[in-house]
């Protein structure tokens, strides 16, 4: 595949994510403006932190009078799940240069991880397509925040258009194709159930991280057991 068609593919893959993050970015910019933050702080959070949920949480904690250290600590907890995503992607980047790995890691998000995993599962490890997608998401996220800051009050509620369901729908569309074998399906069921349980217990911030640990571990154990059975029967 040549460079041009790789970049085109990255742009095509970015489309469902763009659809989902634009309304969230607009809402983020509006929140920042209404919270009395300066334009540069609103943009700076998007450019340096680049983590949707944490940006919302930081602004609402700040409004609640939280200490800066507490805001940074919460961000660490909320974003700790990226440790697992980064580790899961790492074995696929053997042929990549250090610069390409930096571009992948520093711009890693839940949404891009979902798309990258789906592509890696098809043994497509093309760096140009993956990095193009990362850069598009990065720029669109920053631009949507800026637009929300300036135009926020003029924008009608995105919920009325169902756009708030774009990201959950995308996760459904990316999750099903990678659940084709039994361990993966079991990992998904256990991961989802654990995360839901943590939300019920009011520990939602840890749900995704612990859910992933539990899901993957149960999945590996099941696979091991199936193998033992086969050996035993054989």
């Amino acid at each position: 595949m040549n460079r041009f068609s790789s970049i085109t593919m990255g742009m095509k893959d970015a489309l469902p994510i763009v659809l989902g993050i634009v309304p969230i970015g607009l809402a983020y910019g509006l929140l920042g403006q209404q919270a009395g933050l300066s334009f540069w702080v609103v943009l700076g959070l998007s450019l340096f932190v680049f983590a949707g949920a944490s940006q919302f949480i930081a602004i609402s904690m700040f409004l609640g009078g939280a200490e800066p250290v507490l805001i940074v600590g919460t961000t660490f907890i909320v974003n700790f799940r990226h440790l697992l995503m980064s580790a899961a992607i790492a074995p696929r980047l053997k042929s990549w240069t250090v610069r390409q790995r930096l571009m992948m890691g520093s711009m890693l998000t839940d949404e891009s991880f979902a798309v990258h995993s789906a592509r890696f599962a098809r043994n497509d490890v093309n760096p140009a397509a993956a990095i193009t997608l990362n850069i598009i998401i990065y720029l669109v996220w920053a631009a949507a925040g800026v637009a929300g800051f300036h135009l926020g009050p003029l924008i009608a509620r995105p919920e009325a258009w169902g756009l708030d369901f774009a990201l959950p729908a995308m996760f459904i569309g990316l999750l099903l194709p990678i659940c084709t074998n039994r361990p993966a399906a079991i990992a998904a069921v256990c991961g989802g159930a654990t995360s839901a349980l943590f939300h019920l217990l009011g520990l939602g911030r840890w749900g995704v991280f612990i859910g992933a640990l539990v899901g993957a571990t149960v999945g590996v154990a099941i696979k091991q057991e199936t193998k033992d059975e086969e050996t035993h029967l054989g």
Partner: peptide, 13 residues
């Protein structure tokens, strides 16, 4: 198995 587990953990809530 991290990918299926974590995507489902993000989706279900």
């Amino acid at each position: 198995l991290i990918a299926p587990a974590i995507l489902s953990a993000l989706l279900l809530p």
